[in-house]
Structures are given as C-alpha cells and as structure tokens.
Amino acid sequence: MRIQRIPLPEQEAVQEESEELDLSVLDPLIDKYRNKKGNVIPLLQGAQQRLGYIPREAFEKISRETGLEKSQLYGVATFYAQFRLSPVGKNIIKVCHGTACHVQGAEDITDALEDSLKVKDGETTEDMIFTLESVACLGCCSLAPVMMIGEETYGKLTRDKAVKVIKNIRIREKQSNS
C-alpha cells in the first residue's frame, strides 16, 4: 500500500512564501463537475493538472464548493498513484521498473540517478528542477531499460548514459534561467 499524507500546515507555510497559489483556476473545473455522479476522480485530476499537485487548500476549496467530504477526496487521492500531495520538480524523471526493464538493470539506473541528484526515489531536488520517480511500465519494453522525462523517452540506458541526460537538462535549465 502506498501511504501519503497531506503536509502539515506549518510545512505548507514554508512553500507558500515562495509561491502564492491561485485557486481560482479551479472554478471552471468545479462548475463543470459539481453534482455529477462519479466526479471525484475527474475533479482531482483536473486540480492536479492545473496546479501540478493537489495542495491542502485545493481539497478544502473543492469540498466547500461541491459538498463532497474532505475525507472522501483525501481517501481517493491517497489511493491512486497518480495524485501528488506535494509540489514536484520542473522535470519528472520516470524510470521504468517494468519486468523487462527490471531484468535489464533498471535498479542500477535508479541508483545512479539517486547518487547524481542526491535525492531518493520519489523525492524532488532542492532546486526544484527534478523529481525522481519509479513507474510500473512505460510499455517500451523493447528499449529496456527506459526512462521518460516529459514527452521524451530515453532507451537502452546505462548508468552513465542516464546521468549524462540529467546533466544536460540541468545545464539547459541553468542557461535558460540566466
């Protein structure tokens, strides 16, 4: 079972200083799905799509304006792997851990990326550039081991190849910022 928790208010406060959340982007979504049956998952998916993750305030707003219980929203959000309760990095690195990738050494790829990024699987780098994730199967088994960053898929990886991809993205990000 995956266990996630909504961040405590004080932890949330730290993040809010850097970024003010604009929850009005949720209004059209809530209008569309209010009182529709089976609306919980689309509401949460929509909220995450607009905000990148589902902050505590979004749960509160959706609950207040649709009448759905917070416990119900939270129960669904924590059940499914898709939903994130904390902010993510600009680039989400999805390392495939399907069977084919596993037998071709996916573990090594995650290891190498953990070392290079100095984060654990599922965490985000301090500079918010990367989030490292393991996913079940990307369905590109013939290119194993594989990772996906944004729309781009990188196949037939080795430790060095994977780290090099990350380094290049970081350089690009730094250049575009300066």
Partner: peptide, 25 residues
C-alpha cells in the same frame, strides 16, 4: 473514455467499477 488514476487493482472488474464511480478502487 474514463481515465484511470494509477492503481493496478483496478484491472479487477469490481474495483474497476468502483473507480469509474469515483471511489477508491
């Protein structure tokens, strides 16, 4: 089309139905 939200157990038919209904699968 209903998009799943990432739970392997939803391949089981009663869990899938629960998920379509917007519940924990």
């Amino acid at each position: 089309v209903k998009e799943g939200a990432g739970a392997f157990v939803c391949g089981e038919e009663t869990a899938l139905i629960a998920s379509v209904e917007g519940k924990r699968g």
